[in-house]
Design a protein around this nucleic acid. Structure first.
Length: 232
DNA sequence: TAGGCCATCTGGTCCT
DNA sequence: AGGACCAGATGGCCTA
C-alpha cells in the first residue's frame, strides 16, 4: 500500500529555502520552552542510556543476581527502592516518547504550513504581500482553480465555435466543477446557501471567470473595496 | 475585551 | 513497536 507521504511528497528542502521557510526542522526561533524540552529530552535519553536496566542483570557466568558482592555501589543505587525506580524509568521512557512524538508532530505541522505557503505563493492577492489565512488559502485556491478551469473551457469554446469537438477536453457545461467533492460534493465552489457563502468566489457559476466583479476584496486586480474580514 | 488565528501539546487510532 | 495522522485542548498574539 502506498504511504500518503510518498504520494504527497513534501517540497524539496531547497524549495522551502526559496520560500524563506527553512528546513522542516523546528525554526531557530523556538520558544524557550521548546529549547528546554530539547535539553530535557537529551538529558532523558542520556539518563535512559545510563539508567540501570529495568530487569536486574545476571552475572555473566552463572545463575542468579549479582548481589552477593557485599557492597552497595554508591550513587544511583542510593535512594528509592527498585520498584519505585523501575516505575520512574517507565515514566521517563514514556515521557521521552511523548517528547519525540511532539517533535515529529511539530515538524509535520511545519511541513503542512510550508505547503500552504507554497500554495499562497501561486495565488494572486491584493495587495501582493497580503497573507491569507489557512482557511482563506484553501478556499481561494479551490475557487481559483475552478475559475481557471472555467476560463479554459470558455476560451476553448470560443475558439472552436458552437459545435467544436475539442471543447470536450475541458469540463462541459453542467459537469461538476474541478473540486465537486468539496464540501461533500457540492456542485459549485461556493453556493450562496452553503456554509461557504462567505468564501471567495472568483467565478461563481452565476458569473464569468474573467469578470472582475467576481474577484472581490483583496484578491481583485484593482483597489480593494472595504470588506469585512469575515467575508473575505 | 471578545473573537479569530495560530502553534503546540496530547492521547487515540491506524498503518507498516 | 514506532511513526503518521487526526482532533481536541490550551494559551499567546492581534485586531476591531
Amino acid at each position: 500500500m502506498l504511504v500518503k507521504a510518498e504520494v504527497l511528497a513534501p517540497p524539496a528542502e531547497d524549495e522551502l529555502l526559496l520560500l524563506g521557510l527553512g528546513s522542516p526542522a523546528p525554526s531557530p526561533s523556538l520558544p524557550s520552552s521548546a529549547e528546554e524540552e530539547e535539553e530535557e529530552e537529551e538529558e532523558e535519553e542520556e539518563e535512559l542510556r545510563a539508567a540501570p536496566p529495568a530487569r536486574p542483570v545476571e552475572a555473566p557466568g552463572g545463575r542468579g543476581l549479582r548481589r552477593a558482592e557485599g557492597k552497595r555501589r554508591p550513587g544511583r543505587s542510593r535512594g528509592a527502592p527498585r520498584a519505585a525506580r523501575t516505575a520512574e524509568t517507565a515514566q521517563r521512557i514514556k515521557r521521552s516518547r511523548r517528547l519525540k512524538a511532539n517533535n515529529r508532530e511539530r515538524n509535520r505541522m511545519h511541513n503542512l504550513n510550508a505547503a500552504l505557503d507554497a500554495l499562497r505563493d501561486v495565488l494572486p492577492t491584493f495587495p501582493e504581500d497580503a497573507k491569507l489565512t489557512k482557511i482563506e488559502t484553501l478556499r481561494f485556491a479551490h475557487n481559483y482553480i475552478w475559475a481557471l478551469t472555467e476560463t479554459l473551457r470558455l476560451a476553448g469554446a470560443a475558439r472552436l465555435g458552437p459545435d467544436g469537438a475539442a471543447a470536450a477536453a475541458v469540463p462541459a457545461e453542467g459537469s461538476p466543477s474541478p473540486a465537486s467533492s468539496w464540501s461533500g460534493g457540492a456542485a459549485s465552489p461556493a453556493p450562496s446557501a452553503s456554509p461557504y457563502a462567505c468564501t471567495l468566489s472568483p467565478a461563481s457559476p452565476a458569473g464569468s471567470a474573467s469578470d472582475p466583479e467576481h474577484w472581490p476584496g483583496r484578491f481583485a486586480p484593482g483597489p480593494p473595496p472595504p470588506l469585512p474580514r469575515r467575508c473575505l
